[in-house]
Design a protein around this nucleic acid. Structure first.
Lengths: 246, 246
DNA sequence: TGGTTTTAGTGTATTCCTTACACCTTCTTT
DNA sequence: AAAGAAGGTGTAAGGAATACACTAAAACCA
C-alpha cells in the first residue's frame, strides 16, 4: 500500500475509501527469519521502514494485487502466499480512509533478485526479531502475520518454501527453531519429519563443508498433494509445557 | 453488506471502491448448527437469502461495523466475534467494486430477539448443513467461516458461547458433534472436558425431563482468562485417521 | 406400585505418540 | 595422524488417546 510513486491526484481517485494490500515477505538466511521491508521515500512516514504494498487496481483481485506487489519488488512469482486478514482502523492511514488486506509469502531468499522497483524503494531484509518502528500500523500487521506463520508451520509442511530446493535436515531444523523461537531435539525432529515421508533422499551430500557432509533432501510435492486431498494434518508439537496444573 | 435500504445515490457515494462487512452469525438449536440469514427485498439478488452485512461507514472501524450489523439485526451485543478474512474478487458485486470483510459470531440462540431490522429483512435461522444458493459470493464466505469455526472449536473453548449459561455435558457434546460433523465417545469427551477444569459444577440438575436429570455446569471465565495469559492451548482431537500409511 | 423407558454417569486396559537422552561416524584442517 | 566439527542414529519411560459396557436415577404407564 501507500506506494510513493503515485501523484496526489491519482491517489485521490481512490478515495473516499480505498483499499490496499500489504505483503509480509518472509525469507530465511543465516539461521534467522527475515522480512523484506522498503524504506519510504515520501510522506507520510518518509524515511521509515514499511511493508511492501500497493493500492489495489479497480479491476484487480486481491490475490492478484498481492502477487503483483511481490513480483514487482522481488522478481519472484509462484510462491506460497496466503491472506491473513484485513486491517481497517479508521485512522490507520493519515491521508484518508484506507483499509489494507495483509498477506504473507514465503520465498527462498536466494532467488531474490534486486529489481528496478526494489532498488528504487531501497528494499532490505530485516531480522524479524529486531524489527521495530514501522510506518502505519505495519508492526501490528507483521505481528499478526508472524503469529499465523508460527501456526501454519506447525500444521502444514510449508517450511520448505523458505529453503533452497535441496536442503539438509539440520538446515530444516534450524529453520523451524528460528520460526518457532524454540529449541528442538535433533533425534526427535528427524524421526518426526522422516516419518511423514514427505522428503525425498537425493543420495547426494553437501560439498565444501569443513566437517562430515550432510545428506541432501528435497520436498515431495506429489506425495504432499495426495495427502492434502485425503485430509492430511501435518503436526509438529512444541515441547509441552505443564499448564493444566492449578 | 449490500443493504437494500440505501438509495442508489447514497450507494454511489461509496464507489469507485467500497467495502462492507458480512457477518456469519452462528447459533445452535435442536442439535443443529444454524446460521442467521436475511431475505433480500431488492436487487441485486432480490428474493435470495444472504448473509447480514452492510457497507462500512467512513468513520467506522471494521470491527465496529461488524458489531453494529449484529446488534441491529439481533438486538445482541457483547458476543464472540472474529474476523475471518476479506473477499475481494473483482466481480463479486454486480453493481461495482465492493470488497467485503467476513466475520463470524457465536450467539446463544435463545437470546435472539426479533428486532425491527430483522423483521423488515425477514431474518431466519437456517441449518448450516442445508444452506445453498446464497446471494453474491456468500456461499463461499459461509464455507470459509464454517471451516474456521471447526478449527477454532478444537483449539479454543468457545463452544460455550452457543449454549445457555447453564448447560449439561450431553448438550455440550451434541454441540461439538454438530459443529465437527463427527461422533464423539461420551466417556472420553467428558474425561477430556472435565480435565481442563474450565467447567463449574453448579450442583443443580435439569428439571422437567422424562428421565434421569443431568447435572448443570457453567463455563469458568476467570479460569479461562488465567489460562489464556499463560499460553494455554485447548485442544480437542478428532478420531484419528490412519493417513501416514502408504 | 412395580416394571418399562430413557438418558446420565462412570473406569480400565491397550495402543500409540512424545519425550529424554549419548555416543559413534565422517569429513576437513593442521 | 590427531583434533575439530557437525552428521547421524535407537531405546526406554511416561502420558495421552482410544475403545468399550454396565449401573443409576428419574418419569411414565399399565
Amino acid at each position: 500500500m501507500e506506494q510513493e510513486s503515485k501523484t496526489m491526484s491519482e491517489f485521490n481517485n481512490f478515495f473516499k475509501s480505498a483499499f490496499s494490500v500489504d505483503n509480509v515477505i518472509f525469507g530465511f538466511d543465516e539461521g534467522d527469519l527475515k522480512v523484506l521491508l522498503i524504506k519510504r521515500g515520501a510522506d507520510p512516514f518518509k524515511g521509515m521502514w514499511a511493508l511492501p504494498g500497493d493500492l489495489v487496481y479497480p479491476n484487480e483481485d486481491l490475490n492478484t494485487a498481492a502477487v503483483r506487489v511481490l513480483e514487482e519488488l522481488t522478481g519472484i512469482s509462484d510462491v506460497y502466499l496466503e491472506q491473513v486478514r484485513a486491517f481497517g482502523a479508521v485512522n490507520r492511514h493519515p491521508l484518508g480512509r484506507v483499509i489494507t488486506i495483509a498477506y504473507f509469502s514465503l520465498i527462498n531468499i536466494n532467488k531474490y533478485v534486486v529489481t528496478a522497483a526494489s532498488f528504487a524503494q531501497k528494499a532490505k531484509w530485516h531480522s524479524v526479531s529486531t524489527v521495530k518502528d514501522l510506518a502505519f500500523d505495519h508492526n501490528q500487521i507483521l505481528d499478526a502475520c508472524y503469529n499465523l506463520l508460527k501456526q501454519r508451520v506447525r500444521t502444514r509442511p510449508i517450511g520448505f518454501e523458505l529453503l533452497p530446493h535441496k536442503f539438509t535436515l539440520t538446515a530444516l531444523q534450524h529453520l523451524y527453531e528460528a520460526i518457532l523461537e524454540t529449541e528442538l531435539d535433533k533425534r526427535n525432529f528427524r524421526k518426526k519429519i522422516l516419518s511423514m515421508n514427505l522428503l525425498i533422499d537425493l543420495n547426494e551430500t553437501q560439498e565444501g563443508v569443513a566437517h562430515r557432509p550432510a545428506k541432501l533432501y528435497k520436498f515431495d510435492n506429489d506425495r504432499y498433494d495426495k495427502l492434502v486431498q485425503d485430509g492430511f494434518n501435518f503436526e509438529l508439537k512444541e515441547s509441552r509445557r505443564k499448564l493444566m496444573a492449578e
